[in-house]
Design a binder for these strands. Sequence first.
DNA 1: TTACACATGTAATTGGTTACATGATTGC
DNA 2: GCAATCATGTAACCAATTACATGTGTAA
Lengths: 177, 177
Amino acid sequence: MALSHAILVCLTERPMSGYDLAKFFDTSIAFFWKATHPQIYRELKKLGGQGYVTSAEEVQSGKPNRFVYSITDAGKQALKDWSREPVALPLIKDDLLVRLQAIEYVDKDALREQIRARLAAHREQLGQYHHIRDVRFSDGKPAPEDLGKLMGLELGIQYEQGWIAWCEGVLQRLEGT
Amino acid sequence: MALSHAILVCLTERPMSGYDLAKFFDTSIAFFWKATHPQIYRELKKLGGQGYVTSAEEVQSGKPNRFVYSITDAGKQALKDWSREPVALPLIKDDLLVRLQAIEYVDKDALREQIRARLAAHREQLGQYHHIRDVRFSDGKPAPEDLGKLMGLELGIQYEQGWIAWCEGVLQRLEGT
DNA sequence: TTACACATGTAATTGGTTACATGATTGC
DNA sequence: GCAATCATGTAACCAATTACATGTGTAA
């Protein structure tokens, strides 16, 4: 399983609570990995049991207390061990493309609407990536420890641009059919 | 859930056995959806119970008998109903990109090797898509019922080309780091 | 004789989603 | 008063993967 490792990777950036992690998965690294909060809380407990993270209760006045998790040296070692294992090709499961395969059997108006919605979502996502790039990586050469993040971001940008171009082309060809 | 609908979509092409479907998922539509054979057999049973597919035992000499499934009219109606529901953005879970996020904490030699392997996989996949395109869609305008398949294929080609370009760039930038 | 393709399934485990549950503060 | 955000968790259910299980025919 790799959710545990994705969490460890997040914690190399900075210590976080379960809540922080859930938001981080929702925004920053949503392009690479997704996870819901029950999953994250469950996994944090397991990681604690393995000694890969430690938690510290942070007392807050007015708000409920937070349990902030940090990666341990053993956790960093676990990351390095994991990084030597081969990676699988990502699984893709895309309803929209499945529907396109059976174009005779689907509601074409609904399909067009779904493609327009998808196009809007990719444009929105591209905008966010551009924003992150401008804010975090505007100044020439990135630091070596940020190089991987920049390259991931570039893949995301290219991916969204590809989808946008494809959606536009498909909408044109579906017009009046 | 959408595996059931992916199976129905496959069966609009032609009747198939569970074994055929497993291969079909592995080759033809692997870009859109993936499924293993226990999943498929389980799902076929459920679809039969709902009346969306019918099965016929095909006696073969020498080989074990096959159960060939066909989509019913009710199944076609279920596909149409499903096609009106909104689609979700596909989930992405890519170990390689997660590792790239924590580039300081991973084994760089292993990472380079993994990217080379990924590059090779994308080149291989691109070759297969080109082959399918040349065999199935070489002659000018596709039939209307094939248009969706062609557009899906074009997305796949673009997707693989994007990955290939990205992998090549990343390998160059990681050289000697 | 070894391996591979055909062909179908079950069992056990792990992973993921949805719904439920609680409770304070802030802003409209 | 209502909704949203912060904050953490459990329970139940559903989906997916991996391993187990069996047996035949064909070709190297």
